[in-house]
Design a protein around this nucleic acid. Structure first.
Lengths: 203, 203
DNA sequence: GACCGTGATGACACGGCATGCCATCAGGGT
DNA sequence: ACCCTGATGGCATGCCGTGTCATCACGGTC
């Protein structure tokens, strides 16, 4: 939402707004230029005109700075699932939520997401954090499903499945050229559903 | 495999075998008694009769000590998938691999796995590491599927799905009383397949 | 029996991460 | 003018993880 450009060099003393956003921008720039491991937290803080201690007030650790933009994601998706038509199947509810978000602001974030994913892919610790965020998203979706009357076990399974589809679709979308995310999401869901459908022969 | 009991108190100077195993046992005991965060690496090393530096020669970091027993897991499962009957569907290949392992030594490890999972659940960093291990397992399985002639995209999807089923089944198995892991695995696979199967109505 | 190569370990130093604690400062309300 | 709140600066501390070199045990060779 709040995505206005921040300037660093000038008189950017404290009490300036968007401290977290400034820190995030400084971090992404430094990570891109010199790599994640080679960038220290004091370096990021200095570039944002803040101190190390303040960095850790806005982010629980160094990794988390790359996921600032996704903090509201679980709440948004859960709300969309909660507002889905009640006649849908459990999987239909989840996909409705993702679909509603995919048709929204997602298209404009493509390059931002791509650059962050490039950094995340370069470090094992960042990959781990991303996986945790996805699982947490799944748990929130699972709760939303339960409020729709879905059984707990089924909610967990469908939520995990939906998040997996979302993950794979996101990767495809970033690699593909020009396709709308909604279309990639649908395609991935369809292909995966076909593969997972109990085969006629064997198993 | 090598699971013999280790003794600490005695003259356990260096050059004793199974240094990694001794470190792992010492770590699990300390984590169980006083918690993961409250246990330091020097403490673990001292209990195992070794030094901090040696700990980090056997494990890349403090978290990894809890996953020593699973180091061979990807290789084993991949081999089982590779040896699966060629007429099976992609998902059938994966499930054949998990099933073959479930009927094997898994039953005897239940209490070990349970105690480790209790520790893992108490710390976010450990949860992240567990998720990464699962994804890595999925990637190895995906490669095994490709060697069976499965398309790359399909292999990724089916492998991720299979690992998710395995995860959920494992959790169920640890909570349930007395059920064989193979049965829980089959039950989970069946229920999840039904949920994920494209519904007749809506979506 | 003496020599040497290999590999695991001990010991030390060092930088970065993360947190607790208190002082400081800006803004708003009274 | 006073106080309260909240964000920040600054300092100290402990643990994590790694690079480096010395040390020691074991096995092979002569």
């Amino acid at each position: 939402m709040a995505c206005r450009v921040i300037e660093y060099g000038g008189a950017m003393s404290r009490w300036a707004p968007d401290a977290a956003l400034r820190l995030e921008r400084a971090a992404v720039e430094l990570f891109t230029v010199q790599g994640y491991a080679a960038t220290s937290v004091p370096q990021i803080a200095a570039r944002a005109g803040l101190t190390t201690r303040t960095f850790f007030r806005h982010f629980p650790d160094k990794r988390d700075v790359l996921f600032l933009r996704e903090r509201e994601l679980p709440g948004v998706v859960a709300a969309l699932v909660a507002g889905a038509p009640a006649f849908l199947s459990p999987l239909g509810l989840v996909m409705h939520g993702f679909e509603a978000m995919a048709t929204g602001p997602f298209e404009g974030w493509r390059e931002d997401i791509r650059s962050r994913r490039a950094i995340i892919g370069s470090d094992q610790g960042l990959r781990e954090r991303e996986l945790l965020k996805n699982v947490l998203l799944g748990e929130v979706i699972s709760e939303a499903l339960e409020r729709h009357g879905v059984d707990g076990d089924e909610a967990r399974m469908v939520a995990r499945y939906g998040v997996t589809v979302f993950e794979l679709a996101l990767t495809d979308w970033l690699q593909a050229d020009g396709s709308a995310f909604v279309d990639v999401l649908h395609s991935t869901a369809y292909r995966m559903g076909r593969l997972v459908r109990p085969a006629r022969q064997g198993e």
